[in-house]
Design a protein around this nucleic acid. Structure first.
Lengths: 236, 236
DNA sequence: CGCAACGTTGATGCACATCAATCCGAGTGG
DNA sequence: CCACTCGGATTGATGTGCATCAACGTTGCG
């Protein structure tokens, strides 16, 4: 995993992935820069269930996931919960910050991530302009995803939501039609704006219709991907 | 409206607002830069109802609203519609683009905007680094807003959605408690993931409860802002 | 084993959608 | 100035998809 000299865009991710002082990074970044990187970045680990970003606290840090999965969610005072997204390795966390964090972030599985203070990030960006560009690209992509989720939450039926969820995950993961979900039914429900009961019932309905197979609670096989994608898009 | 020399961040907005060759811009940007700006930016006007961004077409342009209001929405094949946002003067359009536009944009009122090709934007950014920074800030803010809307669409009741909508608009517009809505009930419904009937009924319920007054269909007076904010947050 | 957390399944309820009249206000033309 | 029209908006009657409540399975771990 070699870092191209002029592609500083991936720097943060690389630092995180390899550890700041790894050979590949040291090979291409001048020593004084490495010093700075070491000052501003930090490697962290959490076990499943731990919260590492707290809603309403000042958004001082910025994270890159390097291993494991995390869950981002927003809470209402009475306990209602909306999962706004799941983060997998390579994803940035904390972009969507405007003063205070508007969400909690919790480890779904054992999690490793790289932390940079916002101040550090600012310095890094001024030093590696391509990093800023990369972040902008990332933010644009996320915005695009967010719009899709608004359509899902505002207008899709339970069946369409589940179909969307399944195809979305099949798309990212190994291009296989077998997906392994690192999250619980409760997480899925809160992600899709449904209840666990509805998620359970709807998955079973899809199974009865011969569209999926449920090998194990967390292991689902997509038997008819095109049909699922059609349902997800609202085309039936 | 003078442009500070080193704050190129607002450049695009300024260009749009004043016209590329306006005195204030010419005063602070070298001539050869102005030439470039003129090449890449373009002033456009639309009348209410016109569509200027089409879902699924390649995302080639980037816009800044300078006058009037626009509506962004996503459509499903069977006609279901989700309004993902409203744009008012100063707002950027087209950030959330990932290959093709994922939404339609239509003028709600007579509309003026400034167009920059994505290629032009790239050149502008390399020339005025602060512009990129500004866009990143903007994208972060939008992401934050998007998360709030996911919570609204996924978990809030009709009453809470309307309260959120009203306080949101009261917050932006003149800090008065009287808001004038440039959109129809249908737009509001599709924005909040409800039907026009529910919007109408719920607004009347808020009126009966003494929380708002409806002077005119488009003119609403907030009588008890704190109570509305409390409802919006789910605190009752 | 035996608990505890998670998941499924069934019966019932309700918030909001749907269907169906009216109503209202801004244009338009006589 | 009024009658006519027509796209929104309101209001009411009814339907339904999903939530809620409740009971029971299932899995995994000490």
């Amino acid at each position: 995993m070699l870092l191209r000299h002029h592609d500083a865009a991936n720097l943060a991710a690389e630092c995180a992935r390899c550890g700041v002082r790894s050979a590949s990074v040291c090979a291409v970044v001048p020593d004084e820069d490495i010093e700075q990187l070491a000052t501003y970045t930090q490697h962290l680990e959490f076990e499943a269930g731990q919260t590492f970003i707290n809603q309403d606290e000042p958004a001082e840090d910025f994270f890159v996931v390097t291993e494991g999965h995390a869950r981002l969610c927003t809470l209402m005072p009475d306990g209602r919960r909306q999962v706004t997204g799941f983060a997998s390795p390579g994803q940035f966390l904390g972009l969507a910050a405007d003063g205070n964090y508007a969400f909690n972030a919790e480890a779904l599985t054992p999690l490793k991530l790289c932390r940079v203070t916002r101040h550090g990030l600012k310095l890094l960006m001024s030093q590696f302009p391509q990093l800023e560009q990369r972040l902008l690209t990332e933010a644009s992509r996320e915005l695009s995803v967010a719009q899709g989720r608004m359509l899902l939450l505002g207008r899709k039926t339970a069946r369409e939501r589940l179909a969307s969820f399944l195809t979305e995950h099949a798309g990212m993961a190994a291009c296989r039609d077998v997906i392994v979900l690192p999250m619980t039914r409760t997480d899925i429900a809160d992600y899709l704006g449904l209840t666990i009961e509805t998620v359970s019932r709807t998955l079973n309905a899809l199974r009865r219709d011969g569209l999926i197979e449920i090998d194990h609670v967390t292991r689902i096989r997509l038997l008819d991907r095109p049909a699922l994608e059609d349902i997800a898009a609202g085309g039936a």
